[in-house]
């Protein structure tokens, strides 16, 4: 168990849960961060933040403090 922001480049994780009911949580839900979805970390921006990930059929850039909301089980 880890949070998404802790994953390394190339690692994949499966969404376990997400906390909160604010705008950020809602946007993440809308973008498809639901229990069981697989996420792959593609890279980090030059200053280490934000991070680029793949989710469902698309790519997303999100800040690490946003990614910290998402608890994942590391797949590989």
């Amino acid at each position: 168990m880890s949070t998404l922001d802790k994953l390394r480049v190339g690692q994949r994780g499966r969404v376990q849960s997400m906390h909160g009911s604010d705008a950020l949580a809602q946007r993440l839900y809308e973008m498809g961060f639901l229990e069981g979805e697989e996420i792959e970390v593609l890279g980090f921006a030059p200053l280490g933040d934000p991070m680029e990930i793949r989710l469902r059929d698309y790519r997303l850039s999100l800040r690490r403090n946003e990614a910290a909301r998402i608890t994942v089980a590391v797949v590989c």
């Binding site: 705008a23 946007r27 680029e52 790519r59 997303l60 999100l62 800040r63 946003e66």
Partner: peptide, 11 residues
């Protein structure tokens, strides 16, 4: 206001 959500699609 609340910190805007950054979450940005990379098309």
């Amino acid at each position: 206001g609340e910190t805007p959500v950054f979450v940005m699609e990379m098309p």
